[in-house]
Design a binder for these strands. Structure first.
Lengths: 213, 213
DNA sequence: TTTTAATATAATTGC
DNA sequence: GCAATTATATTAAT
């Protein structure tokens, strides 16, 4: 099997997701991820899988402790599972959201105003907060400096290297972008590449070897 | 001008923010607030603006002392402004944390990763702590009992009534929720309505008049 | 020491 | 993917 590096990452990600949601079927997005048609689209990732072992040791421990945390989390909704939980939330949000006026609907800017009527802040809604080790954070930040918009394949490889589930990695990058790219845009000196300047840079293959440790 | 009560609150909030950041341009979130399109969406807030004067007297004094406090704070970073300050903090958080021992890193509890080396001077890292008067605290607590999740419009009105900048109000409610709702969840006797029991209660219009003092 | 304002960040939701 | 929020954890001032 020659070009199975990407596939290996996907498989790992799927297994990670099972760890992530032990008593649950994967959420819709992730079910979608493993569809066969989806697996056919990976073709342009040239990764050196031989040099990636640097974080593997940490990964084991991380997986263990993470499993404990996640079990705690899932114990809060042991029967219904995530999809039910999400459905509940959506039903809530949908049913209780007030309808928009014409003026509101025609706004160009998104209004930061939210209806007080869609507040179902049940404590069980939120996943137990995970915290990442120093090495994981540094690795993620290095990845962020290289490419703040990793695609799914890259997120899978990051997941495999760090032992962090791929959905967590996606969230991490989202939050990171929100905090840093936006801030950099408003200030004069940009420490990190912003989204615009970065577009042509993401897929330069020459940067890829740096990713593997 | 008939339906300008909400607008008045927004304008007041903007002015409050200028007081809050005297030598700075408002932070991004607040710049967003004053966009003209934003001002068009307030329509369904039924506030009795005539009965809100009870805290106005206090507000004047509060504004004065607050201005002094905030000036002290801003004098510490007179040129760079908030965004630079944030960047400094972020920069510090980025690269300079001490390395963890294995045991520390593998803790299930959050491991503290912070640098002793390059912490910014303590005096500049945190905003000068503001303290609220008894009347303000009582009013905020009443608001919290009515609705622990005030939206932006309501926060603006609270800001106008109490003379407290809207960002401070948001932080106050955040901290209040963290302390109070969590406590209520963990203990048997719930003194305040918790998030779940609260849901059907927030939107009773009959409670709204109480909000205006 | 205790309380709480301020900060940082992971997670959620709606668009 | 982003904006705005929430929960959560921690720091630091009172």
């Amino acid at each position: 099997m020659a070009c199975d590096a990407e596939l290996e990452q996907i498989v790992y990600t799927v297994l990670t997701l099972q760890d992530d949601y032990p008593c649950l079927s994967p959420p819709p997005r992730d079910q979608h991820m493993v569809s066969p048609s989806f697996l056919g689209i990976f073709h342009d990732l040239h990764s050196n899988m031989e040099t990636k072992g640097c974080l593997q040791e940490r990964q084991k421990h991380q997986n263990r402790s993470m499993k404990i945390q996640l079990q705690e989390w899932s114990e809060k909704t042991p029967l219904e599972g995530i999809s039910i939980e999400i459905q509940k939330n959506n039903a809530y949000a949908k049913g209780t959201k007030r309808s928009l006026s014409e003026d509101e609907a025609h706004e160009t800017k998104r209004s930061k105003i939210q209806s007080e009527k869609l507040q179902p802040p049940v404590s069980t809604r939120y996943r137990k907060r995970t915290n990442y080790s120093k090495e994981q954070t540094i690795f993620l930040q290095n990845q962020f400096d290289i490419n703040p918009y990793p695609d799914f394949v890259r997120r899978c490889s990051i997941a495999k290297i760090t032992g962090i589930p791929e959905p967590r990695i996606q969230v991490w990058f989202q939050n990171r972008r929100a905090r840093h790219l936006l801030k950099a845009t408003n200030s004069q000196e940009r420490k990190a590449p912003c989204a615009e300047t970065f577009t042509g840079f993401i897929y330069k293959e020459s940067h890829y070897p740096d990713i593997w440790c």
